[in-house]
Design a protein around this nucleic acid. Sequence first.
DNA 1: AACCTGACTTCGG
DNA 2: TCCGAAGCCAGGT
Length: 116
Amino acid sequence: MEYRRSENLKDPSLNQRIITLIKNIPEGKVATYGQIATMAGNPQATRLVVWTLNSCSQKEKLPWHRVINSKGRISLKPGQGYELQKMLLQKDGIKFEEDDSIDLEKYLWSPSEIRL
DNA sequence: AACCTGACTTCGG
DNA sequence: TCCGAAGCCAGGT
């Protein structure tokens, strides 16, 4: 499936779009880095998503915990924020499998009505 | 101005 | 199937 953006928009920087998208992740849903990058218009900017989360999650007040990797697992290491993220996700109503992974089929965000 | 980095993803051996 | 290596982007140094 393709995520296209309307052409008469201004051209905010890619990371600005990334920020906007992350802000739009609804409670109870998660998105993968690659998905965010794709929606922002550049499927190959996953590293940028990482950078964006690191640099803007706090000041932009992003729901950063809703962003996970493609395997449906938290990318942070224990003691580095892993536990916090897991807690926040559970607070959102997301359940973890026995191996601590998240069922993407069930929780992956489907941005059907998002317009940038 | 060149080089490094980051919570990833994908491809090849 | 599993692990290593390369690739991608923009801001920071």
